[in-house]
């Protein structure tokens, strides 16, 4: 059973599973599993597994220095 957060700032540790909705901010550690919906932002650390479920959600993979987007995301990057 996943914990559901909406418009919250939260940490996930251990093997916990979380679904993040609205404008939530999630810091994922250890072996946790997070699904990012709506406009949520998830930062992935350690061995966490984060899935980007929404075109407007942002997943930051801090291990590989990657910004992971949904396949339907409209975003492009620019450096300025």
């Amino acid at each position: 059973m996943s914990r559901v957060v909406r418009d919250e700032i939260t940490e996930v540790h251990g093997e916990e599973s979380v679904k993040a909705y609205g404008n939530s901010t999630v810091y994922a550690y250890d072996e946790s599993v997070v699904r990012a919906y709506d406009e949520s932002v998830v930062k992935a650390y350690d061995n966490s597994v984060v899935k980007n479920m929404s075109p407007h959600a942002i997943v930051v993979d801090t291990r590989n220095m990657k910004i992971v987007l949904n396949p339907n995301s409209p975003y492009t990057t620019t450096k300025e």
Binding site: D61, V68, Y75
Partner: peptide
Amino acid sequence: VDFRKMKIILNPESPFTLEKE
């Protein structure tokens, strides 16, 4: 993340790359 222009704006020195799942 600039929602008006649908752009992710990085610093010129940023090491981040973009990946689509």
